[in-house]
């Protein structure tokens, strides 16, 4: 019962973080602040949802798989964020040859 409550709390908090990250994408003015909002908020949101689901898991194997999902998503998300920011920086420094 306590476990269910904790799960519910973690998943709800995770969803809230996802929503705020999405709001950031929609409302923030430039690539860098959007990326910041997205990767930070979604990273935390995913972590909380994984935590909430892990509390409901019936076996250690399921918890391991959930943890693997979280690790891989966190790694690839931050790498993609770095690549996009890097690319945007290159683009911003390049002289504009078009109107």
């Amino acid at each position: 019962m306590v476990l269910d409550g904790l799960s519910l709390l973690a998943v709800t908090a995770g969803v809230l973080f996802f929503v705020s990250g999405t709001l950031g994408i929609l409302r923030f003015p430039d690539v860098f602040s959007r990326l910041h909002a997205l990767t930070k908020a979604d990273g935390l949101g995913l972590g909380l949802i994984v935590l909430g689901l892990a509390l409901q898991a019936t076996s250690l194997a399921v918890i391991g798989k959930l943890a693997l999902v979280w690790i891989v998503a966190a790694l690839s998300g931050s790498t993609a964020c770095y690549l996009m920011a890097h690319f945007e920086l290159e683009r911003a420094q390049e002289p504009h040859d078009r109107a």
Partner: peptide, 22 residues
């Protein structure tokens, strides 16, 4: 597919190094 400077990026090759065995 992606620019040279990115293909040599330590962040990308670090991630790929971790992910490839997985």
């Amino acid at each position: 597919i992606i620019p040279w400077e990115l293909s040599a990026s330590p962040v990308l090759s670090g991630l790929v190094g971790l992910l490839a065995p997985v």
